[in-house]
Simulated assay, not measured.
Amino acid sequence: MANALLSIQIIPKVKNEELYSFVDAAIAVIEAANVKYEVHPMETTMEGELSELLEIVQVMNEKMTEMGAPGVISQVKISYRPEGISMNELTEKYR
């Protein structure tokens, strides 16, 4: 079982018309990492081992600069529980 949930809002410093292609590329990094995730209007939440999720955040930031963003802001929220945690566990009563 996963021990962490990590939500990220990644904001590459680019022109507004370029933003969506950068966000799509950031989500593609998550897809390639093969972790459970959900895209929401304001952020994307991943479920997995904390160390793995933090590595994904690093790769996402590197991808943004490789694509030409001169800088990136990443707003990250982490819920860590060594005995295990899941998105479903926290949201099932709302579904």
Rank of each mutant, 00 (worst) to 15 (best):
K77T: 13
L90W: 10
T45F: 01
I8G: 11
Y94T: 03
A28V: 05
Q9G: 08
I10H: 07
E62D: 14
Y37M: 08
E89F: 00
M67Y: 03
E49R: 12
E89M: 00
T91C: 05
T91A: 07
Y37G: 02
G48V: 00
E31S: 04
T44K: 03
S79R: 14
E49C: 10
E52K: 15
V35G: 08
V57G: 11
L54D: 11
Y94C: 00
S7N: 12
P41D: 01
G71L: 03
E66G: 04
I30D: 06
N88I: 00
V72F: 12
E52Y: 14
G84H: 03
L19D: 09
Q9K: 05
I56Y: 05
A32K: 15
A26W: 09
V39M: 10
V23I: 10
P70H: 00
Y80G: 07
A69E: 07
S21H: 13
Q75K: 12
S86D: 04
L5H: 06
M64Y: 10
P41Q: 02
Q58A: 14
P82V: 05
E31K: 06
T91E: 02
A32Q: 14
Q58E: 15
D24G: 15
V57D: 06
L5F: 07
V59C: 15
M67C: 10
T45L: 02
N34Q: 01
P41A: 02
E62H: 13
M42C: 12
Q75D: 12
S86H: 07
I56T: 04
T91P: 09
L54C: 10
E38G: 10
A32Y: 14
P70Y: 01
E62L: 13
M42S: 08
L90Y: 10
I73H: 14
M1E: 10
V59G: 12
K77I: 10
I27E: 08
V35P: 11
I8L: 10
S86Y: 01
H40P: 09
I30T: 03
L5K: 06
P82W: 00
Y94Q: 01
M46Y: 06
